[in-house]
């Protein structure tokens, strides 16, 4: 495992933990898209179906368990414990517009037409666009709390670091996976606008607010 891959995983973990802590400490999930969190729970579930059949390392297995557990915990906090603070009115992105095309594409473009492989491919496609309901929510309310911005920055950095990891693996091992690569590029591109706002505003101590 190279440093980019490790930093990517770390960044992903930090994002997930920031979100959980934010909701837990403030006892509120306002400004957070429950729909994006449902999509992430689906992503982890369909990707890590090989949890018990495909052992890579203790590190891999533990990270998978942590990601899955945290994503379900987040969904529970939003739709269960802190439901009263959830922003139903603004979180209106139609997730079937992401789920259905991802599923169709996974059937059409995959490495192997087998159930596990199709579900893995589906999870890769879905992950690349799963943040859209969250970005939609931010654009609808026109602002994001600073802690939510940190969450989005860590989550966006994760796939960017994976892109560097794939570049590294291509040159050092000749390894590449076009499905993951192209989806990873799309996923990172979706964050570009946000990255710009984060660097130009949040890092200078200002709250992230969008021009009216």
């Amino acid at each position: 495992m190279n440093v980019f891959r490790f930093l990517g995983d770390l960044s992903h973990l930090v994002a997930i933990v920031i979100l959980l802590l934010k909701i837990w400490k403030t006892r509120s999930c306002s400004g957070i898209s429950g729909r994006s969190q449902i999509l992430f729970a689906i992503v982890f579930t369909t990707r890590y179906l090989d949890l018990f059949s495909n052992f890579i390392s203790v590190y891999n297995t533990s990270m998978k368990i942590v990601y899955i557990t945290c994503s379900y915990a987040t969904v529970y906090l939003i739709y269960g414990k802190f439901k009263a603070t959830y922003d139903f009115n603004h979180d209106t992105f139609r997730i079937e517009f992401l789920l259905v095309p991802s599923a169709i594409l996974a059937f059409l473009v995959n490495h192997d037409f087998s159930p596990l492989e199709i579900l893995w491919t589906f999870s890769i496609y879905l992950e690349s666009v799963a943040i859209l309901p969250q970005l939609f929510l931010v654009s609808k309310t026109g602002e994001a709390e600073t802690i939510t911005s940190h969450y989005l920055f860590a989550l966006g950095s994760y796939r960017l670091l994976y892109l560097l990891n794939w570049l590294w693996r291509y040159f050092s091992q000749g390894f590449y996976d076009l499905i993951a690569l192209l989806s990873g590029i799309l996923q990172t591109v979706l964050y570009c606008d946000f990255f710009y706002l984060y660097i130009s505003k949040v890092l200078k101590g200002k709250k992230l607010s969008l021009p009216a």
């Binding site: 992903h12 891999n60 000749g174 996976d177």
Partner: peptide
């Protein structure tokens, strides 16, 4: 294209 049979990434 080299595809690792066992997926080793997260």
């Amino acid at each position: 294209q080299v595809i690792l049979k066992k997926k080793d990434e997260l």
